[in-house]
C-alpha cells in the first residue's frame, strides 16, 4: 500500500433545477505518503467539490475513490463519518473553533467521537498535538484570546490529534496576513518533513510554491499536475523580516 489517496475517473454531477451541472468531469490522480500537494483553480473550477469528496463529506456520482486503500464510493453516511474521524484532518479557512472553549478542549473534540480513546489518552494526545504546533503555553486560552495565526494553529492541532493519514486544508491561509501565512506554511512544511501527507487547496500561487506538487483544475478537468521546486517558508519568512526592516 503506497497510495494515501487514489481517485479514478471521478465525476460529480449536480442537479440544479432541470439542468445538470458537471462539477467534475473525470478526474484521476494519486497522492503518495509524504507528499505536500496544492490543489489550485479559480472559483467554479471544481476544487471545492473535489475537496468535499476527498474529505468524505460528499460521494462521487461515478468513479472510484480510495483513501488508505479503502473504497469510499459505496459507503453509508455513518461509515463516512467514521472515515472522517479516523483518516482525515480538516483545516478550514475560518478555523471553525468552538467559541468560549479552551484550545485544549477544541483539540480534544475529534477524539470525543471515537469511543476507543479513553479520556486520559485524549488529554495526552491533545497536549502532544498542541506541542507539535508550538502552543504548549496557550492550552487554556479560548479562541478570542488568541491571534488569527494562533487560532489556525489550534485548528491544525485539532486536525493532527486523531493521527490522520492526510491533512486536508481548505484555503487555510486565506484569512491571514502574509507574514502569518508564511508562518503557517512553515508549520505545514515541518509537519510534512515529519512525514505527514498534506493536500492544500488554495488559489494563491505564492502560497502554492511552498508545496512540492501542484494540481490545477479548470472546468472540472485537471489541466496541470506538476512537481514544484519547493521554496522554504522559513527562508521566505526571513527575507520578509529583512525587507520590512
Amino acid at each position: 500500500m503506497n497510495e494515501i489517496i487514489k481517485i479514478e475517473q471521478l465525476r460529480r454531477t449536480f442537479q440544479v433545477g432541470s439542468e445538470e451541472v458537471h462539477a467534475l468531469k473525470g478526474v484521476s490522480f494519486t497522492i503518495r505518503p509524504g507528499e505536500f500537494v496544492s490543489i489550485m483553480g479559480a472559483s467554479g473550477s471544481g476544487k471545492s467539490t473535489l475537496l468535499n469528496i476527498l474529505g468524505c463529506l460528499d460521494r462521487p456520482t461515478s468513479g472510484e475513490y480510495f483513501i488508505d486503500g479503502i473504497a469510499v464510493s459505496q459507503r453509508t453516511k455513518d461509515e463516512l463519518s467514521i472515515l472522517r474521524n479516523r483518516k482525515i484532518g480538516f483545516i478550514f479557512q475560518s478555523y471553525n473553533l468552538l467559541p468560549r472553549t479552551s484550545a485544549l478542549e477544541n483539540v480534544e473534540l475529534p477524539l470525543l467521537y471515537n469511543n476507543s480513546v479513553s479520556s486520559k489518552e485524549r488529554r495526552a494526545k491533545a497536549i502532544k498535538a498542541l506541542e507539535q504546533v508550538g502552543l504548549q503555553d496557550r492550552m487554556m486560552h479560548t479562541p478570542n484570546q488568541l491571534s488569527g495565526g494562533q487560532q489556525q494553529r489550534v485548528a491544525i492541532a485539532r486536525a493532527l490529534v486523531n493521527d490522520p493519514v492526510i491533512l486536508l486544508a481548505d484555503e487555510a491561509t486565506g484569512n491571514l496576513d502574509t507574514r502569518t501565512s508564511y508562518e503557517i506554511m512553515n508549520l505545514f512544511q515541518q509537519l510534512n518533513n515529519e512525514g505527514k501527507t498534506i493536500a492544500f487547496v488554495t488559489h494563491e500561487p505564492d502560497i502554492a510554491v511552498f508545496t512540492n506538487r501542484t494540481i490545477q483544475l479548470r472546468d472540472g478537468y485537471i489541466i496541470r499536475d506538476v512537481p514544484v521546486s519547493t521554496q522554504s517558508a522559513k527562508t521566505a519568512l526571513k527575507s520578509l523580516l529583512v525587507s520590512n526592516d
Binding site: 474529505g55 453516511k77 472522517r84 471515537n114
Partner: peptide, 16 residues
C-alpha cells in the same frame, strides 16, 4: 449551524 458542520466534518454521525 457552523459548529454542527464542524462536528460532522470531524466525525460526528447524524445520531451523535
Amino acid at each position: 449551524i457552523k459548529e454542527i458542520g464542524l462536528r460532522m466534518s470531524i466525525g460526528a454521525k447524524n445520531k451523535d
